Amino acid sequence: MTSVRMDDITTQALERLVAVALSDTGQSRRCADFLLAWYNAAENGGFDLTTLWGMDDELASACSVVFLWVASHRAYPDDLGYGEVFQRIWALWRAGSEQAG
């Protein structure tokens, strides 16, 4: 178990992005793309910053909060106990494209 912890504001931002990524809205893929780039950019593709243009302000702000936290803490989702939920996001948004390739 790691001692890395997110503050409440960052945790709320991350959990908002996770909830949208696991849903079926017009912004779900955008949130998933952002989160999966953090999880493993080499396997899941990078995150095109212009994707933020298609997000509502609340979600773009949540990305910003998480991005700043990641930049200063150098931790992966697994380090924070989010490994399983990120696997679910991966299965929802990437598993089919991997099988097609």
Rank of each mutant, 00 (worst) to 15 (best):
M1H: 07
T2D: 11
S3A: 10
I9P: 00
I9D: 14
T10D: 09
T11N: 08
Q12S: 10
A13T: 00
L14K: 01
E15F: 11
E15H: 04
V18H: 01
A19R: 10
L22V: 04
S23M: 04
S23Q: 03
D24T: 13
D24E: 15
T25V: 08
G26L: 08
Q27R: 04
Q27C: 07
S28G: 06
S28W: 07
R29C: 05
R29S: 11
R29Y: 09
C31K: 03
C31E: 01
D33W: 04
L36W: 03
A37W: 02
A42M: 12
G45T: 11
G46C: 06
F47R: 02
D48E: 08
T51C: 05
E58L: 09
L59H: 02
C63L: 02
S64T: 10
S64L: 07
S64Y: 10
V66W: 02
F67S: 15
A71G: 10
S72L: 08
R74E: 13
R74H: 14
A75K: 01
Y76A: 13
P77F: 06
P77G: 02
D79E: 11
L80A: 06
G81M: 12
G81T: 07
E84P: 06
F86W: 11
Q87G: 04
I89W: 09
A91Y: 05
A91P: 00
L92R: 15
G96Y: 08
G96F: 12
S97A: 15
E98T: 11
A100V: 12
G101T: 11
G101K: 15
